[in-house]
Write a protein that binds this DNA or RNA. Structure first.
Length: 476
RNA sequence: GGCCCUAUCGUCUAGUGGUCAGGACAGCGGGUUUUCAAUCCGUUAACCGGAGUUCGACUCUCCGUAGGGUCACCA
């Protein structure tokens, strides 16, 4: 299967019924990767045929999410193709045309029952512990379809299906999977089962990637392709992304976040793409940090995993940090600062904040971490003089008396540094020499504590630099 | 219940009959000019069970077990 005869066309076809989370996004990513790797076409198709469940703004959120990650579509809601719109609700006449083809072949008929009657059939089947099959109730003769009743597919041939899946290998299903499913609903909208196949045919889709929930209905799709006398696309079943704990597919219930949340929190698009690509796929080597371009080059269908993978946010943080390291410092600093409402802070605070950036850089996983820690009071000392606990200022077995003596000495040393030479290295040099003589901890701990008022903080030299000479001497 | 799918460290995975079963995240221990962080080094930890095939099974077959999917006028 290494040779792909026709042009690769993939599509990501979400339903705009809610916010998109990483599960859906990963499906889109794989489709995009495969298209790009093969210099093919990637289509974003909006499957909005369920007008009841549709959520306003969902389509926009999907588009924004893909755009954020740089998954650029060649055709989409904003870019129709020769086949027309990429929004299903704008393609109703096309589905009608295809439905008519089936009616003409005697392969589609109006459902003569009421919903209640069908429900009754279903209940009865359940009671008998039998799978419900509408085809067992198929009418002898078909009425003419006037569009007010659901139009059903008449399964042409009951048989056992076996097909090839690029990920799972040979898949098969018994005849129980075959039924007279609804093609067009009573409200005039087509069902997913029907219209996605019409669209895939019309749009020339070569590879269909989707979750394993569709394996069971593949025989239905296959029989439709046969009815239209069209060769089916290549199928690739993607493994589910599982929630952090548990064994079930990731859902909003177990904290699946809106993709744009990750943008807000300051994850790097390339890191997100890298991480997502590695959920259920793996290139085989020991390299884990991949650029977008490397992913496109390396991606392959046959290395997609069969079984589900847990979503691990800690690893995402690690990947993100690795990607941040690859980015220019200036860009990162800009991003880190972007979370602060600088207009609400005074000049001196902003000045100190900027001097603190290198320290915060080491401590963060995402761009928003600095802001989060700042808000939590982690860096409160840069705004105001901290309050002390005199017991904590003394290092280990040392005495308060000694400590005060040391600090006085340090104060004298620091006073001698000119304002314009107030740099970390210079501060360190003077203090260090003295600290070596009387004991490092005896001097450095109290110095750091008196500047920060915290038991945990960056080193005293950095603190002194950030606070400035005047404030430093004041606090000692 | 019918049909279908899956199964290697806690997590993501490498592995396609012969490996000390490798890597990463997390964990643990240590170094790195005081604390924390960062960083570096080291380290704990896995082939679901049982038969069979074979000189030899994590790898192949079968049977279990466990988990998952699906059986809509939802996608």
């Amino acid at each position: 299967m290494s040779e792909t005869p026709k042009k690769v066309v993939t599509r990501f076809a979400p339903s705009p019924t809610g916010l998109m989370h990483v599960g859906g996004l990963r499906t889109g990513l794989f489709a995009w990767l495969w298209a790009r790797k093969n210099n093919g076409t990637f289509i974003l198709r909006i499957e909005d045929t369920d007008k009841v469940r549709e959520m306003p703004g969902s389509k926009e959120q999907i588009m924004e999410s893909l755009s954020w990650l740089g998954l650029v579509w060649d055709f989409g809601p904003d870019k129709p193709g020769t086949w027309g719109s990429c929004i299903q609700s704008e393609r109703l006449d096309i589905y009608k045309k295809y439905a008519q083809k089936l009616i003409d072949k005697g392969l589609a008929y109006p459902d003569p029952y009421t919903e209640e009657q069908v429900e009754e059939f279903r209940k009865k089947a359940e009671e008998n512990k039998q799978p419900f099959l509408f085809r067992n109730h198929r009418p002898e003769t078909f009425e003419v379809w006037d569009g007010t009743k659901p139009l059903r597919f008449k399964v042409p041939e009951l048989k056992r299906y076996e097909w090839h899946d690029e990920v799972r290998g040979t898949l098969s299903a018994g005849m129980e999977a075959l039924d007279d499913f609804v093609l067009i609903k009573a409200d005039g909208f087509p069902t997913y089962n029907f219209c996605h196949i019409v669209d895939d045919i019309e749009m020339g889709v070569s590879h269909v990637m989707r979750g394993e929930e569709f394996i069971a209905s593949t025989p239905k799709f296959l029989s439709l392709y046969e009815a239209f006398e069209v060769t089916p696309p290549i199928f690739a079943t993607l493994p589910p992304i599982l929630g952090e704990s548990g064994t079930k597919k990731l859902s909003k219930r177990d904290g699946a976040k809106d993709v744009l949340e990750y943008k807000k929190e300051g994850y790097v698009p390339d890191a997100m793409v890298n991480f997502l690509a590695f959920i259920g796929w793996n290139p085989g080597g020991e390299k884990e940090v991949y650029s977008r371009q490397e992913l496109v080059e390396t991606f392959s269908l046959d290395r997609i995993q069969k079984s589900g993978a847990r979503f691990n946010p800690e690893k995402l943080d690690w990947v993100n940090k690795e990607h941040i390291k690859l980015l220019p410092l200036e860009e990162t600093y800009k991003q880190m600062l972007s979370y602060f409402e600088t207009e609400l802070l005074d000049q001196e605070t902003i000045h100190r904040l900027k001097k603190l950036l290198p320290v915060a850089y080491d401590r963060m996983n995402t761009y928003s971490d600095f802001y989060r820690d700042f808000k939590a009071g982690e860096y409160s000392y840069i705004i105001e003089k901290p309050s002390f606990d005199m017991k904590k200022i003394v290092w280990k077995q040392d005495t308060l008396e000694n400590t005060q003596k040391y600090l006085q000495e340090v104060k004298i040393i620091l006073s001698s540094i000119p304002e314009d030479l107030w740099e970390i290295e210079n501060i360190k040099h003077g203090v260090w020499e003295y600290a070596e003589k009387v004991g490092r901890g005896n001097v450095l701990w109290p110095l750091r504590y008196s500047l920060s008022g915290k038991e945990k903080s960056p080193d005293p030299f950095t603190l002194a630099f950030v606070l400035g000479k005047k404030e430093t001497l004041l606090r000692i």
